[in-house]
Design a binder for these strands. Structure first.
Length: 424
RNA sequence: CGGGCUGUAGUAUACCGGUAGUACGCGUCCAUGGGGUGGAUGUAGACCGGGUUCGAUUCCCGGCAGCCCGACCA
């Protein structure tokens, strides 16, 4: 894409009403627009990042048998009354409204009840099981206090998958597959070395749920990590009993701040019984379906990546989620020969399948370089008069700042390889 | 939801009981052209309502909005 056609602009100054690093940088670089507190629009660059994260998650969900679908934002009151979660005393994040005929509706803050109700249409026999359905959905939550930029908003994108299995054994098997799939997702987006499977409260349903916690100082959670055993325990459930059960001692646990980027948990048969989701087994006996729920905060994950990788010059995206692989900068747009060279390189990179953002604007070189740092695309390729004279192209990695001089052919081959490796 | 703070051009800020200045942006012109260049010139602003006052952007009250701390966060 030509940068001259991007309607977004970078800003030198951070907005005064944002404290969080992720929001400041994403707004300055033109990735998001704040509509109101805790509500952000995703602009062309930001949307590309969201879509890249979704693509990775989608691939991993499909690998374990997930089927993608999409539920509704408007939800009827009755569904939630059946499980006691319509009452504001039990769920304090509801946005509620009424239809013209007076019927109560809620805006989806979660989708367990609607999807489980829907499954009554499709699950009647053991032959219909298992079902693993998932969606990417905008969740609406009336948080008392939005904070931390896109990390905790009133409107955000979440991937939620629900598993419907015939018994605990089948559930456990899938639950473990999902645990591995989640770890794979976090590894692919570049957070593998600092994201831990974390034992957390299982609420009314099971002893534990499992969170995926990424270590970062901006995090709202406190967890105790055993890096050696690659597990962590949320502070909320840390007791001598739990440590003994998990085979760790207090001495090997390190206290750190972290952000919850994923969460998986078991409902057992409780919700199925409440809502009447039953099936007939091989012997004709009616049994409740076993339910599991698995979430990844897509936009929160994006914020987490900003918080962890950004530096003092701006954003730094891992290749797997970057909006573009290459940022091509034409520093001397008034020089015809140089411009023709850059135009041709832009075309050839695209033909080779590389996502390129081409800064063809007439701005000063310094501005373009500073903007490139702020926008944070992994590889910056600079074309100026010097380039043509030297016959070598200057390619700089955003993350390390390291510059290589390469031939045109080497550049295209390398960029194409990187594109395939991360987005193939 | 408890506590604290703040609302001034598109953005970031300053001053002031006598209706506002700067920087960036945006427009035009000249110079410049590899790390936010220099100069000239133009453009654009007091959240809303009420009160006090000769006069309110400034003081007071209410509303709305935003931020921070805490609580909350299957």
């Amino acid at each position: 894409m030509r940068q001259s056609q991007l309607f977004t602009k970078t800003r030198k100054q951070a907005p005064s009403d944002e404290e969080a690093k992720n929001a400041q940088l994403l707004i300055r670089a033109g990735y998001v627009h704040k509509q109101m507190a805790g509500v952000y629009a995703y602009l062309p660059l930001g949307l590309r990042v969201v879509e890249n994260i979704k693509k990775i998650v989608r691939e991993e969900m499909n690998k374990v048998g997930g089927e993608e679908m999409i539920m509704t934002s408007l939800q009827p009151k009755e569904l939630w009354e059946s499980t006691g979660r319509w009452d504001d005393a039990n769920v304090d994040v509801w946005f509620k409204s009424k239809l013209k005929n007076g019927a109560d509706v809620g805006f989806g803050w979660s989708h367990e009840e609607p999807i489980t109700d829907m499954m009554k249409q499709f699950i009647a026999s053991y032959r219909d099981l298992p079902v693993y359905a998932y969606q990417f959905q905008t969740k609406l939550r009336n948080e008392l206090r939005a904070k931390s930029g896109i990390m905790r908003g009133r409107e955000f994108v979440m991937k939620d998958l629900y598993s419907y299995t015939k018994d605990e054994a089948a559930h456990k098997e899938f639950y473990e597959k999902m645990t591995a799939a989640y770890l794979k997702v976090f590894e692919r987006v570049g957070l593998g070395d600092r994201t831990y499977l974390t034992f957390a409260s299982g609420g009314a349903f099971t002893q534990f749920s499992h969170e995926f916690q990424t270590i970062t100082d901006i995090g709202e959670d406190t967890i105790y990590v055993s890096k050696e055993k690659e597990i962590a325990i949320n502070k909320e459930v840390l007791t001598d009993e739990v440590m003994a059960q998990l085979g760790v001692s207090r001495d090997e646990l390190e206290e750190v701040k972290s952000i919850e980027v994923g969460n998986i948990f078991s409902f057992g048969d409780v919700k199925s019984k409440q809502m009447g989701l039953m099936y007939k087994d091989e012997s004709g006996e009616e049994k409740p379906v076993i339910l599991g729920s698995y979430g990844i905060g897509i936009t929160r994950l994006m914020g987490t990546l900003v918080e962890i990788f950004a530096d003092d010059k701006g954003l730094v995206w891992p290749e797997a989620v970057a909006p573009f692989m290459v940022h091509l900068l034409l520093l001397t747009p008034d020089d015809e020969a140089t411009k023709a060279y850059a135009d041709a390189l832009y075309e050839d990179l695209q033909k080779a399948g590389v996502d390129v953002l081409y800064d063809d604007r007439s701005n000063r070189a310094g501005e373009k370089l500073a903007d490139a740092d702020l926008i944070g695309i992994p590889a910056r390729v600079v074309i100026g008069k010097n380039t043509i004279e030297a016959g070598k192209i200057e390619s700089t990695y955003r993350r390390t700042g390291q510059t290589n001089l390469v031939s045109r052919e080497e550049l295209i081959a390398f960029a194409s390889g990187a594109q395939k490796a991360h987005h193939g």
